[in-house]
Write a protein that binds this DNA or RNA. Structure first.
Lengths: 333, 333
DNA sequence: AGATTCTCCTAGAACGTTCTAGATATGGTG
DNA sequence: CACCATATCTAGAACGTTCTAGGAGAATCT
């Protein structure tokens, strides 16, 4: 009646079992399983056959303990972030191509980034790639003395950092809007999120150099805070003094912003333009139809894996791409 | 100029180092680090002090290799799913309380669930908790002979399965709508997603027992497919024959559905009611303001951890809760 | 024929822990 | 004083691999 997990696990077969069953030494069996050189085709065939029959799988703990080559990478990111999910997909593909496995650790508001990092390291990964919004750079560099640590989406001094050129992305958005006649821009900033400061600064700079008015609203990287911030703004600001274009920190924030706009009965893009960032799946949907900035996920992933596997890990900065959709239009005063 | 990860990792301190530095045997140092009994308070203090100074961290590979107690759980889920993110949060909290670490594996359209499972097992976890939408039950039960495998959100025969009472959730939605005069219901189904069949069947059954018309549209668990399916439906169905209420598979699907509805210039809830499932963060936003069904994430997590840690892992089924918001209303013919 | 070089194989140490089975010392008891 | 119980400690095997060093044959060279 009870589940069958109650029965004692029948010890999984070990390399010794395989060796014994195929009448060779453990060392030779190891050579075959690793695909190393030094075994005849004949032995190879036999050992592989036996291993398959027994359902043998190498124990990665023992393997990495001995060889310091676990062929496993640690990846730290936040769950529920569309961009992170995309990145993970690309990273998996890249790691695959190099014969590496990936295990993840989830960072989050309530979960200590340092601890996530430690958990991955203790599990025996060869390198860690991660999005660490809040972990102090000092701690990261400290850890990086033990094994390669690659910072994704955030520039960390002294660490290989794979990032997008935020200034370029924001500049494209601002110029796109300015070219359509907008002279009063509003940025819903990402709070403590990764890249938030870069985008905020880039926004101010780009607006200044285009000689248009710029205002920044402190918000966050999620729907709710963005909604709240913009909602308050729209209620408190006389309609005539309102910005005619809103740049949200990312697409999720734009979704929240959109709802504040709808609630204020403003038309997008007729009365107000809206932009996101990241070009998430839902930004492409008809109603959102969000002008956004696409980060080069594939290139980021490729660079991160490369930095992780080659000890001489180099930082790199990748160009984003403006994606114009229906949520931005000409300013009609 | 180059990053400092190029310098050779200064081997991390081992238990032997700690023992030597504190002038005791390795065995005693081990006892202290484990908090096992058999050491004087004096030695305890000294060893701990030395360990802290050296920055010693036990190697979980060696530890679990020897003792088959890694105090680590594997968690397999999909990235980018709000519900999964919530579950992970709750599971982390629960695991914490039991002194367990968690490492994740991401399942996904392009990633073999079996392989994710293997990666976690090879990393030395004591048990795996996972959402496995597509992995055949036979394979799961096969693996569960090696270590406890807990199925989350999907009933798998022969495996401890922690699920929500989908029939109850759907029934509440249907009855809620029927009570408001709706007699023609449409369900956007979740395709091959976990729980999709249960919800679909429950929808048909609940509609039948309430004696209202029911129609099911094949879609999927994401925004895009839901949008597409409903968009086509609204275009092809004469307005007078349209359903007056749409039950989306989950909140993400509801978001897509909402956009199809907006595009068709229908008012929610005046002309058409819409419901989601999962009560995600964004379903609470003003514009979405989505009537949904809340799964008891905390209870699910608690049950899953309990099943994973106690070999006698029991299945359980949890009651969901209807959350009424502004996206559903009286039918106005 | 001896030396050299292959190819194929193996014994045994090592990785960093935990665990078993004692050793040693301390103190109480008959 | 001999005996046992208890508390504290330790040596060394074990976990499942990989790696180093070398051995046995067979083939090639000089």
């Amino acid at each position: 009646m009870s589940s069958n997990s109650a029965s004692r696990p029948p010890k999984r077969p070990t390399l010794t079992d395989v060796a014994r069953a195929s009448g060779v030494s453990v060392a030779l069996a190891s050579i075959v399983m690793r695909g190393a050189e030094g075994a005849s085709e004949e032995s190879r065939a036999k050992v592989k056959q036996v291993a398959a029959n027994l359902g043998y799988r190498p124990d990665s703990r023992a393997r990495s303990l001995r060889s310091t080559r676990s062929r496993t990478l640690g990846l730290a990111l936040a769950l529920g972030e569309p961009l992170h999910a995309e990145l993970a997909d690309a990273l998996y593909a890249q790691a695959d191509a190099h014969g590496f496995e990936i295990i993840l650790g989830a960072t989050g508001k309530h979960r200590d980034e340092r601890r996530v990092l430690n958990t991955l390291i203790d599990a025996g990964v060869e390198a860690v790639i991660g999005v660490f919004p809040e972990l102090p750079a000092a701690q990261l560099t400290q850890v990086s003395k033990q094994l390669p640590v690659i910072s994704l989406l955030r520039k960390v001094k002294g660490l290989p950092s794979i990032i997008t050129d935020e200034a370029a992305g924001i500049k494209q958005l601002v110029e796109h809007l300015v070219a359509r006649g907008h002279t009063r821009l509003l940025h819903l900033d990402g709070g403590s999120a990764v890249a938030a400061r870069q985008r905020r600064d880039a926004f101010v700079a780009a607006a200044a150099s285009a000689k248009v008015q710029a205002q920044v609203l402190v918000a966050g990287a999620d729907e709710t805070t963005a909604f709240q911030a913009l909602h308050d703004y729209l209620e408190q600001t006389p309609r005539t003094q309102c910005a005619s274009a809103v740049l949200a920190f990312n697409d999720r924030a734009a979704l929240g912003a959109r709802q504040a706009i709808d609630l204020a009965a403003l038309q997008v893009p007729a009365q107000i333009s809206l932009t996101g960032y990241d070009d998430s799946e839902f930004s492409r949907l008809a109603h959102a139809d969000l002008t956004s900035v696409r980060q080069d996920v594939t290139a980021l992933a490729e660079a991160a894996i490369h930095a992780a596997l080659n000890a001489s890990g180099k930082s790199s900065i990748h160009a984003p791409q403006l994606v114009v959709r229906g949520s931005t239009g000409e300013r009609r005063p």
